[in-house]
Design a protein around this nucleic acid. Structure first.
Lengths: 204, 204
DNA sequence: GTCTATAAGGTGATAGAC
DNA sequence: GTCTATCACCTTATAGAC
């Protein structure tokens, strides 16, 4: 049955996301992924051919969510609405895909050696569109003159940190894991920094 | 001569920072560190005993700069001055210690399995002091009521991103490497986000 | 399609000469 | 104190039975 194939594919990807996130690519043992997924090790190779291929599949699994998160920036004419939605979308990724998110961050940190070229291109294109959008709001006098690229860097960093550095955050807050309340606090703080910090206002 | 020992120690640490930053702990081959440092591989073991020990030494090399960077927050009564100096100190670390900074980030991302307990304690203590300081400014009415912990998370993320995700940043800006001008733009943007975003003002 | 048992390759660490 | 040559171990990947 194709159902079994699909089921195992998903199980393995999910397990791989978790183990790669915890250990990094090199330190991850495929046998650990197999164990966590509940399948024998050769099955992992049967489905994904190689460790690197499986790793790439994890990277690809987070690409669509990442690209979609930028849509609020492009689909709203009101920058107040747009930034609010964008910040929440980015935080949602950290909340809903913490493992794949971390794998992606680790990949970028090491210079993206495994990231497929077409994904790089799509992300770059999205970035260009986003910065152009922010620039247009500045030109319309709807927000202060800030550097759009660097504003994105701060936004990416502040939102992704809740996935990438969850250990640090739970250590500081003293809780076992990130709570909904943490994400809510983060959202309203980052919102405030951007909206007030950049004097963003709605069109007349 | 003790001079030779000191010299080699430094050479190896510097090379190790670079290679660990590029490859991560597990993927790093000690022979590559040795090559980059210009010494034979057994010397690395002679000086540092094990790969893990060398890695810990790299982590320790960035601890003092990290702790010192928080001082502006504690030594200034004026939050405007304090935040400005803090942001610049954090960005300076990303600029001056990009490799060790990345190694540290990677370590935290994976749950700090190699970070010595005493360093964790010192960093936690510093964090407690910093949040208390921010809270006192809020209590004095010198800034808006924001969550001090989460404000720190955003500040850490926004400043460290210039070391950790330099690949992404240079890819977007289209330059080969980060320039002084990038750091200047970053500093004034992050400053603006915090000072205006949190309505920070000097004491009367 | 699934799994046991094994081969092939590479890396951390060191023994021992200088 | 320094370095060449080597060991011991571990992990990816697969061959071949079921």
């Amino acid at each position: 049955m194709a159902r079994i194939r699909e089921r195992n594919n998903e199980l393995i990807i999910e397990a791989a996301s978790k183990v790669f996130a915890e250990c990094g690519f090199a330190a991850t043992k495929t046998v650990d992924i197999a164990k966590l997924a509940g399948v024998p090790k050769p099955n992992v190779y049967y489905y994904f051919k190689s460790k690197e291929n499986l790793y790439r599949s994890v990277l690809e699994s987070i690409t669509q969510p990442l690209l979609q998160a930028s849509e609020p920036l492009l689909n709203n004419d009101d920058p107040v609405v747009a930034f609010k939605a964008y910040i929440r979308a980015k935080l949602q990724i950290s909340k809903q895909h913490p493992h794949a998110s971390k794998v992606f961050a680790s990949e970028i940190m090491h210079g993206a050696p495994h990231l497929p070229e077409d994904i790089k291109q799509q992300l770059m294109e999205q970035t260009r569109t986003s910065t152009a959008r922010i620039q247009s709001w500045i030109d319309q006098g709807l927000m202060a003159k800030v550097d759009p690229q660097h504003l994105l860097f701060s936004l990416w960093a502040s939102t992704q940190t809740y996935a990438d550095f969850d250990w640090q955050i739970t250590a500081v807050t003293g809780r076992d894991e990130l709570t909904d309340s943490d994400f809510e606090t983060a959202a309203s703080l980052i919102e405030q920094l951007v909206l007030k910090g950049c004097e963003v206002r709605s069109p007349a």
